[in-house]
Design a protein around this nucleic acid. Structure first.
Lengths: 326, 326
DNA sequence: CTGAAAGCGCTAACAA
DNA sequence: TTGTTAGCGCTTTCAG
């Protein structure tokens, strides 16, 4: 190609094929008004140069669709994967594209989000701080954000307080007296774990609800046995992923649920209804979260909704879903 | 804004703030060499006009990262959702962005894929025909494609023959004699179902392996009871999603697995290890599928690999994963 | 600190 | 059937 190391452009192809840029465009886009012979020559030249049209040049003149960027902590977490799917679905009626990115694997999650913010028309983050992003007029929405984010970005808050209170009442009614909160030991899990401990505080006679850290992927069978040996009668897992793994570990050890010990999760993933026993959990309608978020973004893009402040604040609450595991 | 109905551009903002376009650029991008006063004035003008920089104009001059488009049938299927997550992960080391799209919900799946193909640097399709796309030099890869696609696009083939043969042998050894294949009744499921029937043919004494259509989301308890009443001793589900729902329905009816009936799935989703009994399935390493696919695309983009033909053909086989449900 | 000029790669509209 | 012209919106480079 004309400039080695650089990607071939329409000009390189035109030169090689001995035609004008416009003729190359006609050939590449299968447009009428070009002879077969010329087309073949152009296509051959394009192939030789490994030419691909730039989507930017094309988008500039064609006015491509709105693109929404979604940054989540890690797609290894099914909750984020389901959210991604829900957001894609919610964007489809608008004709928007969705760029999905993980914050966690990159060295600087905030950097990943900031980078992406320059390539999209709007940015949604969950489990990644978006508040610091200088969007330059671009809609930025923090999912699972709190009041403190409101001055900087749009916020969709997912309050769990009421559901946690309901959970505590439910567990009390079921006779639970020695709950243990199982944490993943990550930075993000800290806040939710604190909230769970606070909500369950009324259940225990003396002292505080203990917190134990277990492995996210295995549920850490040994740690689990130690916890049960200490007399725990209820395992309150940080999320459903962990809870279903705990259920598996308990099953393998022959521990009855909810007979010997109760188990609860958080998130309301579909999987919580497919395991045995079906899991009691704090659930949220992820399609509603996605719909509310996309609607908020749409309002911002249209200029109907401000980019920050109380008017850019939405709420979708968790609710208690009682099933077999308690 | 200057041209009503049209999105504001940097020129509109510059005019409104009484500065040059470059000064607007400096303000929007937080660059040095601009007075606070001017910056504020520009930002105010931008906000009033609901101005957002065009990602195309920006990308044109900045040479944005490679963007890969992934079109799947429907993200409601966990298999596709996990694939999406795996592809995002596999693209991260390259610094590529991923645009995720569903083909199924749009009226014309092929149209959705063709549209997306104009907005990305490479396209990967699964459960959606990509063969007809005139990529114009753009890498197009058909996932779960077959030899017939090879002349048109890159292909990652996911052969199930050997695994199905192994499954038949395994079931025979376990004493299965009356298998039933459970289909979803969709167009896409037909091929796999035929293959399952053929592979299991040797198990039955006389006649053919029967096929029954059941509901994807519920497993259709009534249909299931009828099937068992007919004497089926093995339920070969079209995929894991269906299989775990069958397990739930059987559990609720008090049918023992594998005691009363055996159950198998296809896909090897994580959920197949979390249910009880754990599911025997034809599994594939979805991270490997993603890695092979992304590597193929990378080769095409670099010009090392042709866009079609046998050299653009990869294979990742399914394998039999025997667990508790058989 | 601010502005003018150039050019990124492409396609639509018009001219030949 | 082919070529020419004129932008699309933005940032970079260079002048002031």
């Amino acid at each position: 190609m004309s400039r080695p190391g650089r990607r071939a452009t329409i000009i390189d192809v035109a030169a090689r094929a001995g035609v004008s840029r416009q003729t190359v465009s006609r050939a590449m886009n299968d447009m009428p008004g070009i002879s077969d012979e010329t087309r073949d020559r152009v296509m051959a030249a394009a192939e030789e140069l490994n030419y691909r049209p730039s989507r930017f040049g094309r988008g500039l003149v064609e006015q491509g669709p709105t693109t929404l960027g979604l940054v989540v902590g890690t797609l290894a977490n099914h909750y984020f994967a389901e959210l991604g799917a829900a957001v894609v679905r919610a964007c489809a009626p608008h004709g928007w594209n969705v760029v999905l990115a993980e914050g966690e694997d990159s060295a600087h999650p905030e950097k990943a989000a900031a980078d992406l913010s320059r390539r999209v028309d709007a940015l949604v983050g969950y489990g990644v701080a978006t508040a610091g992003i200088r969007g330059g007029g671009m809609p930025v929405v923090q999912l699972d954000g709190t009041a403190e984010h409101v001055p900087d970005v749009g916020v969709v808050e997912l309050p769990r307080e009421q559901a946690m209170t309901d959970l505590a009442a439910h567990l009390r009614e079921r006779g639970a007296r020695r709950p243990v909160v199982l944490d993943l030991g990550t930075d993000e899990s800290a806040g939710r774990t604190r909230a769970l401990v606070a909500a369950l505080d009324g259940l225990v006679e003396d002292g505080q609800v203990p917190v134990r850290v277990v492995d996210a992927r295995t549920g850490h069978p040994e740690a689990l046995r130690a916890i049960l040996a200490e007399g725990a009668d209820t395992l309150v897992a940080f999320n459903d992923e962990l809870a279903v793994r705990l259920l598996r570990a308990l099953r393998r050890d022959g521990v009855a649920v909810p007979g010997d010990v109760r188990v609860t999760g958080v998130d309301g993933l579909e999987i919580s209804t497919l395991v045995s026993p079906e899991l009691t959990t704090l659930a949220i309608d992820i399609d509603e979260v996605a719909a509310v978020t996309v609607d908020l973004v749409a309002g911002m893009l249209a200029g109907r909704v401000p980019l920050r402040g109380e008017d850019a604040h939405r709420t979708v609450p968790y609710r208690l879903e009682v099933r077999e595991s308690t």
